[in-house]
Amino acid sequence: MAFEITVNGAQHSAEVDGDTPLIWVLRDVLGFTGTKFGCGKGLCGACTVHLDGEAVRACQTTIDSVGTSVVTTIEAIGATAVGAAVQTAWRNGQVPQCGYCQSGQIMSAVALLTATPQPTDSDIDAAMLGNICRCGTYVRIRAAIKEAARTRG
């Protein structure tokens, strides 16, 4: 059936089964390929997007559960103040290697800093441990989150 969803401020419609994970609607139907597929089981965080500002795993979110919630993906997160600060910190800190996990990392980091503007190390651990980085950029992710928190004051 057809689902109407709001992604990055615009209305979109997708003709899929209701149990279709949001990740495939975003990537394959609507073309938002910045959101990545890593495990399909909620184990890696590569598919992290925001639903009304909360970080969720798009592979574990069915399209019929989205309703009127607003979906934000990596493509539009820079339009928010926190998103822009995080992206800048990521660039300044030269965080990405292969980069494949980084959309998800950034989306988790933005959700963290939105809820907790000055996170402690254990706040960072708790918010980010669902996001695997196979390239091992964790040292720089931590530093960039702290940098973004500093610039946001």
Binding site: R27, G34, E75, R91, Q94, P96, G99, Q102, S103
Partner: peptide
């Protein structure tokens, strides 16, 4: 600075899967 970093923080980098 790495030339590939800007595209890897805003979702525009294109991998094979994209």
């Amino acid at each position: 600075p790495r030339l590939d970093v800007p595209a890897k923080v805003n979702g525009t980098a294109v991998y094979g899967i994209d």
